[in-house]
């Protein structure tokens, strides 16, 4: 893999759920270190696209290469790919039977085969980074939603991934907790992590995004830098969507 190859290269992806077409001819290219924010109305295929990128869903047609690995259903390289591509879910999906520290170390220990002491040291470092070092020995159910989501982010970071995917990370949070999660994400963005975020947080998008992507009905309608995207959207549909969510 040469240095200037895109980290994610999707070409003409199609995805069907029965007869319903969730992705229509979607092409997207993400460069190393690029921050992409995907927005659009619900049911527009944003989550499907992001879930295809780490193989949680499989596309039916088109070609998808992530970090030099071609993604397709049943690919033997999926596990290797997932070690390079982290995912943060809307519902956090922390492991409730493990402590925060165990949540963070189980991946490195079981998947990367890192010694326990080393994994714990690095887990504590990342907990520091998401600003909850004091919660290491608690169980997820003892934390607030915002704290849980920050643990989930730290869990992905512990795998030393090159790419982080965010699937509406703040949608399940109470309003007062959204900022603590976004702050961590801004921090990550500034550190040069390659990120693809599905989110409705337009303030965050304006702050960190290199590229904005607008999706509707399974298609990418518009792509552009935020400066142009927010002020002069090219398409009517995008303008209508932005008006709806920015008016408040």
């Amino acid at each position: 893999m040469s240095d200037n190859a895109p980290t994610i290269q999707a070409t003409h992806l199609d995805k069907f759920y029965g007869k319903f077409q969730a992705l229509k001819n979607v092409s997207l290219s993400v460069q190393p270190g690029e921050r992409v924010v995907i927005c659009g109305p619900s049911g527009s295929g944003k989550s499907t696209l992001i879930r295809c990128i780490n193989g949680l869903e499989s596309h039916d047609a088109g070609k998808l290469v992530v970090d030099g690995i071609e993604v397709f259903e049943g690919s033997p390289n999926l596990r290797q790919l997932r070690q390079e591509v982290g995912m943060v879910f809307q519902q956090f999906n922390l492991f409730p039977h493990l402590t925060v520290l165990e949540n963070l170390t189980i991946g490195p220990i079981r998947v990367r085969k890192i010694p326990k002491a080393e994994a714990e040291a690095s887990a504590r470092k990342y907990l520091e980074r998401v600003r909850i070092p004091e919660q290491a020995d608690k169980y997820p159910s003892q934390l607030s939603g915002g704290q849980q989501q920050r643990v989930a982010i730290a869990r992905s970071l512990c795998m030393e991934t090159r790419v982080l995917l965010f699937d509406e990370p703040t949608s399940a949070l109470d309003p007062e907790m959204i900022n603590e999660v976004l702050d961590v994400m801004v921090d990550l963005a500034e550190s040069g992590m390659t990120m693809v975020c599905v989110t409705h947080e337009m303030g965050f998008a304006r702050k960190v995004a290199d590229t904005m992507v607008f999706m509707d009905n399974g298609e990418i309608i518009e792509t552009g830098p935020p400066s142009q995207f927010f002020t002069q959207p090219k398409t009517e549909r995008c303008r209508a969507f932005l008006e709806q969510i920015l008016v408040h």
């Binding site: 596990r79 997932r82 070690q83 982290g86 995912m87 879910f89 492991f95 989930a152 795998m159």
Partner: peptide, 13 residues
């Protein structure tokens, strides 16, 4: 839940 499987998958287990 399905989320637990997905979370475990997504860290490459």
């Amino acid at each position: 839940g399905k989320g637990q499987h997905e979370a475990a998958q997504s860290i490459g287990m």
